Structures are given as structure tokens and as C-alpha cells.
Amino acid sequence: MKKQFLILPVLCSSLFWACGDSSSATEPSNDPNPPASEILSSDSGMSPEPGAQSSASADPSDPTVDPTVDPSVDPSNPTLDPSQPESSSGVEGPTENPNADPYAVGTDIDEPSYVPEGCEVKPLDNGRGNGVYCLDSLGTSSFKGTLFADPDADVAYDPANPDLTTFTSVEKVFKALQPDEKVVFVLRHAERNSSSGKTSHLTEFGIFSAQSVGQKIASEDPAYYAHSEYVRTRETLENIAKGRGETGFNHDAYGVLNGGWFIKNDSAFNAYAALSTDGNYVATTDWAFNGGYEDAFYDLDSRAKQFIDEFLVGVISKKARVSVVNTHDMFLAPLTIYASGRQIDLRYYENRSWITYLAGIAVVIGADGSVKVLPVKGLESGTT
């Protein structure tokens, strides 16, 4: 298969939607590409974990979810009735203050980080990386998960022509970064507990796997971290920062990362999800690869380009040379499909392949303003 490599200019060009188009929309809910001022400052309250959206939407990587938890409450808007769910699309109307910063951060949830006690990481007997072990209530050491060594460690990585059919390790991308380049890693959170609500925490294994990703991209320069308004995404980044050896944690919460960026209409989206016991996984991946579903989803290419250009390059990359963004699988699956030129195997509608924890995309910004995107993985594999 001929390799493709997406190069997206920072400024608007023929690869991107026209600059003037974004400012002309007056009804953002009907515009396939609403302007940033009407999108990025709003909380897209869609359940980012399949399972919280509807009872027909089980999470393949964690089938035990709490359907009674309603994650669609915007803590940054005190006037919102917490008993009423907010639209999941995040594009239902402009910000109340027309002069507000279109990239204003959301309000972080004041929840303490979960820190495991009695846990340790030690080498596996088979030599394939490290294992996480924790003491149970009886004081017995129990196995929690494997932090595999990179199975592709000997496979060469060419930054100018990466293999878009597979996930490249974040370590390879980071080590190949030139002094005058910047990188934004956009990853799914680490393994969480059974709750899919906003306040669910990482598991012990999730904590240590996030730290292992941080170790792979460690450097003396502090990174910038952006996450959704969910506790597990912030905890993921806290532990990535810890793995990098950082004593501080420069981070912000953004409502745009909550999950509904590609959803145009909640009712249509939920109707498609209800057609299958696999819920929104089937409709989302079928749409991302084959199109259709125009009543439920925006156009993938223009929507993904807009997010990369306006938010990741236009805002996040300006914070630091290395930035890590943490969000959810329903956001990252289509974004990664786009980043691979639809070559990555995330065809859940055919083979139940879905994006796994700590996988996503890397956005590399050159000194000349060029932008390159590719799928990346933080653990052994990028798919479930």
C-alpha cells in the first residue's frame, strides 16, 4: 500500500475550509463547520465513553459502565439546571458573552487524584516489559496488568514518511522531534474504573500505564497539558507529568474535549446507536470510513481539519514545545481515522476494532508552519 502523509498548513489554504466561511454562520447548529467562537467555548456534554450515552452503547474496552450516571452537566455554567442534560453536540448556540475568548477553558472538577497504595511495578518473568502488582485487603500481591515493552522497537520510523496503516509509538515520534519542531500528542485517557461519569477515577493499572507513557516522552522542558472536564483525563495527565519527572503540572480543562465534536444532532446519533447492540461504535466507524449518516454527523475531513488547525495548532501548540491533550474514545476514533487517511484499522463495524487507552494522534508542527499528523500509541497496541 502506498504510504500517505498528511501535511496540513497552519494558515488556511486549499486543504482547509476557507477562512471567511467560519465567521459567516449565524445558526451554528445548522452549519457543518460552526465558528470557533461558537464551539470551543462551549461544553460538549456528550458521553465520551459509549455506555453513558445510551443503554445500547457498551464500551468494548470496559463493558462495565454505570448507566445511571449522567455526565452531561456543565460545571462551568452555574445557571445550567443540573437535572437537565445538555446537548451532546457542543454546537447548540454561541457563548452568552459575544466578546468572550473563543478558546476559554472550562472549569476543572475539584476532585482529589486517586493515588494507589501498596502498588509496584516490576519486570515480568517473560521479559516482555513490566507488570503492575498491588496488595489486596489480605496483604497478598495481585497482578493488575502488563506494561509491555514496545513490540515495534526495532522497526524504523521515518518522520517524513510514516506508516499510516499502524500506530507509531509516542516514544519514536518524540525522539525524532527536531529542535525547531513542536508536538501535540492527543491521547485517550488511561484505564478507568467501571463508572463512566465525570468523576470516575483511573484504576491502579491506568495510573502506572500513564506514568509509563510519561517516561517515554521525558525531557527537561516542562510540557503543557489540556484535558476534558472529566477527572480521569486530568488524572491521566497528572501521571504522564509524573512519569516525565515534572514537579509541576501546567494544565487546563477544555469543554471542547468532552467528546461531542463530530456529532451534529443528538437525536439522530442516538437513533443510529439504538439500531445495534454495539451502539454508537458501529455508526461512528461506518460514517468515518464510508460517509453517510449526514443527519447525525458533521463531515469528518472538514471537521477534523478545523479542530487540528484552530485548536491544536492555533491554541495548544503555542503553550509549549511539547503538549499532551487528553480526551475520550468517541472523539479520538474518528480523529485517528482521519489522521491515518482512513488507513488505520479501526473498522469496528466490520471487525470490532476500537481505539484503546493512551492511543490517539501526534501533531508535529515544523518551524515553517507545516503540520503533520499520524496515529500513535502509548502502550503495546493502539487498538482493543
Results as ranks from 00 to 15, higher is better:
Y230V: 01
P375C: 07
T95E: 05
E191K: 05
V73E: 01
L300W: 01
V313S: 01
V173T: 06
A362Q: 04
R232F: 05
P85I: 12
S276N: 12
D70E: 13
S212A: 13
S42C: 12
A153D: 09
S44F: 02
S302T: 08
D329L: 07
R342Y: 06
D59M: 07
S196P: 15
A156G: 05
S44L: 03
K318W: 02
E238W: 07
I240G: 10
V282K: 09
T79C: 11
S194P: 14
L15V: 11
A149S: 09
N239K: 13
S61N: 12
P63M: 01
S22C: 11
D158S: 06
L275C: 12
N270L: 15
S340N: 06
H251T: 10
F16P: 12
T277Q: 11
Y224V: 08
A320P: 03
G243Y: 05
L164D: 13
D136N: 10
E181I: 15
P78M: 05
E86W: 13
L374F: 07
G106E: 04
P34R: 01
N239S: 15
T327F: 02
M46L: 14
L138Y: 11
E86A: 15
S370C: 04
L177E: 01
P98A: 03
L379S: 02
A18E: 15
L257A: 02
G214T: 09
L379K: 00
R244I: 12
N290P: 14
P28T: 00
D278V: 13
C119N: 01
F148I: 07
G279A: 07
I308N: 03
F16T: 15
Q306Y: 14
P9R: 09
Y133V: 06
P334A: 08
P334L: 06
R232D: 10
Q178A: 14
N161P: 05
Q84R: 10
P159E: 00
V322T: 11
E191M: 11
E204S: 12
P35V: 04
Y281M: 14
V91R: 12
D150W: 09
I344G: 13
T107G: 08
M330F: 11
Q343K: 12
D125L: 08
W17L: 14
D31V: 02
W261P: 01
V170P: 11
S200Y: 13
I337M: 08
S37Y: 12
Y281S: 14
S381N: 12
L332R: 00
G243N: 03
G382E: 00
D152L: 11
Y254D: 05
P60H: 05
L6G: 07
L335A: 02
A253L: 04
E380V: 15
H328T: 03
D345C: 07
A268H: 11
I109S: 00
G51A: 06
S169V: 07
T383Q: 03
Y254W: 03
K372R: 12
G382L: 02
L332K: 00
N126W: 10
P28S: 07
S323K: 00
G260W: 01
V170T: 04
L177I: 11
P222G: 03
S47K: 04
V170H: 02
L335Y: 08
V213F: 10
S276L: 14
N126P: 09
P222V: 08
S54Y: 05
G127E: 11
F311M: 04
P48N: 03
S370V: 12
F167W: 06
S219D: 11
E120T: 02
V313C: 06
W287S: 04
K264W: 01
Y293R: 09
E380C: 04
I337H: 04
I308T: 10
S55V: 13
N30E: 11
G279D: 05
